[in-house]
Design a protein around this nucleic acid. Structure first.
Lengths: 205, 205, 205, 205
DNA sequence: TGATAAGCGAGACGGTACGTCTGGTCTTGTA
DNA sequence: TACAAGACCAGACGTACCGTCTCGCTTATCA
């Protein structure tokens, strides 16, 4: 997915001449961002200058790959989140609970980065596209697949709207982990179960 | 709610001597922010200098009232959103649909501002507090009240968890309006109804 | 002469509103340049960043006063050179020798700065104007006055061309001190006397 | 004179192995500099990248031949100026006037380049050496020869100091053409004659 | 009524980071 | 080995804002 964020090297050109881009530099930059986040640097306090310095890289080397801080952070987030969790193929209920349980729980840094990308994602169509393709859509698809299985077995209603259902399942968790939208949910320790149960009962055949 | 964002003028002091703060300036500043947003200025492109210039006000006059751009934007958002929509007292279902239908629909500018406050809200406890008290909590409370009515009439289960239910109702709409989390929902035109129906069926007595 | 290099604060405006420019900062900047030169920093290695850092001043504070490095250096040079040496009113010959003897001899730093301003002076009409008004013209005028005295006493030809004569007197010294145009003159220890004698013999009545 | 500026290919080595340096590239680089100057590009706006691009040459190919921009410009200046004007062998006076008349008059670009080399020449002993050997010294020598003829014929004083005299003759013209040191000389149209006459009268036997 | 205290618009202040550019070097593939 | 291309590290450039600090003024309250 890395190349999603890459700037086109030359619109319709060969891109084979000259010294090739150093993958060493590429990795070093992403590592530098992760390191700095690890050390507790606020996302908004992350400066391109600090990243370049930490990575031992010239600033131009960063701008050659990403159009700005947001694009770089976006790719960092993608790297941070990795591929979506896979269902185990147990019951539909168990799989959904499993999928919801890991929302925003794998890496603390991802939870810090995500809200900071909301401004960019809501403004730039390009950032939105990358975010969708690399982060949200793959996770929705995994969950859709589980739901489709439920429909196939007759466990779930045949006229179920997959998109609505998926969104209803994930949104509460996402909003809670990302910005703690409803602080009273802090005390609910089986939130994924509760959500899955309500939705399943609502969409059972 | 406006005064939530106000800096304490002087911790334990009289605050009556000297020239009082000009409410004219106060209004002019908020108006300036709204004007600039209206004109299509990106939230992140909004600079204190531009706001001050537009309001015909010195920068210090802004900082005397708000601690920074985020606090100012937060108050702007509060002003923009106004008091929460009230239920009409019809059926529980109709009231819930009504409440969900207005999420992020009243003023286009609010939808643009909100994602930009997520970084601040997720970082600063103070901003989080204001955001909760002035924006999210009042809206949750309105919805809780409707649900309580349903419980009282026996229409809804008695052991219903209000917080979970409220969050399940609002989150999908909020996330969709704010950052269009699932673009396929664009084509669903009765989203509030569908959500309410699934949840109600899931929590019916 | 300092204000020659100043940018107009506002073309035709009052320039009395707002916080006034800090003369402390102004001095600190010029001092910083001199300090750095003193420490042996090459003129072309002088960076605005280093100057700002050394002066304890923001870069904008420099750019508010000077349009660029060259203008700043020009004013530094003016400060460095100070007012022109005055003749003692002895014989015309003695006065001219005295004036020529100090060309490029007062401060070693001025001799290092001057060649570095040649590119700017030869390109920018504004820099040229300042350089002429503040540096070269005052020195020519002092020398013209001595020559006029010689004409008045009948010692020098009445049809003497002051400009040509002044230029003939100063140019060899200037070029020698500035870029050591003819290195063999290093061994001539009475260069001012020789030049004055040749020119005086050439223009005696 | 070109090879003055060349870097030693390998201190005491054969320099015959491998692909020989392309004289095509060498010429193309110098031509590129001249072209860009012709087009009005400021000397300080001349970048190595622009030169390389214009010459259709890699930057390394430039650095393989010259140590930096200044050395390249210096060689360009040498090429631009060509060999010194030769005296016609007329009278000493006529020859001197002829020599002075061409100072800075042959190619407009040379006059623009020269002031820009002053910083380098005044700082780098190596640049100074090349400048002296290839530009200033040959021109002084031509003029010395004319003066020696005058001494031989008894027209000029036998104890004449050739270096002082040569410097006195050329400096005013040089400084005027290069940086217009005294703008009032713009109106003097027989400057070479006047200078020669004053100096000759001053050094006549 | 006059002193005093705080607020006002304006804009300079010390900083920090931005994104761009250039310098001089290095690394490809090709000749 | 040189070449064209172009990426590399480094760091200065000039700009834009940040949040604070003077200015000279205005506008209140309190003596």
């Amino acid at each position: 997915m890395t190349e999603l964020a890459e700037l086109p090297a030359a619109p319709g050109a060969a891109r084979t001449q000259g010294r090739p881009r150093s993958s060493r530099a590429h990795e070093a930059i992403l590592e530098a961002v992760l390191d700095l986040l690890e050390e507790g640097v606020t996302v908004e306090a992350l400066s391109m200058e600090a990243i370049a310095a930490r990575a031992g890289v010239g600033k131009a080397t960063i701008y050659r790959r990403w159009a700005g801080k947001d694009e770089l952070l976006l790719e960092t987030l993608i790297k941070l989140k990795g591929p979506p969790t896979q269902p185990l193929g147990d019951s539909v209920r168990a799989d959904l609970i499993r999928l919801l349980s890991v929302v925003g729980q794998k890496d603390e840094r991802a939870v810090r980065v995500m809200p900071c990308l909301m401004p960019e994602v809501s403004r730039s169509p390009e950032a939105y596209r990358i975010w969708q393709e690399a982060i949200t859509e793959p996770r929705r698809e995994v969950m859709r697949e589980v739901l489709r299985r439920g429909v196939a077995t007759g466990e779930l209603r045949a006229d179920l709207d997959l998109e609505v259902t998926v969104t209803m399942l994930i949104s509460p968790l996402l909003l809670h982990r990302m910005v703690r939208w409803n602080p009273r949910l802090d005390e609910v320790d089986d939130l994924p179960e509760q959500i899955v149960d309500v939705v399943l009962r609502g969409v059972t055949a």
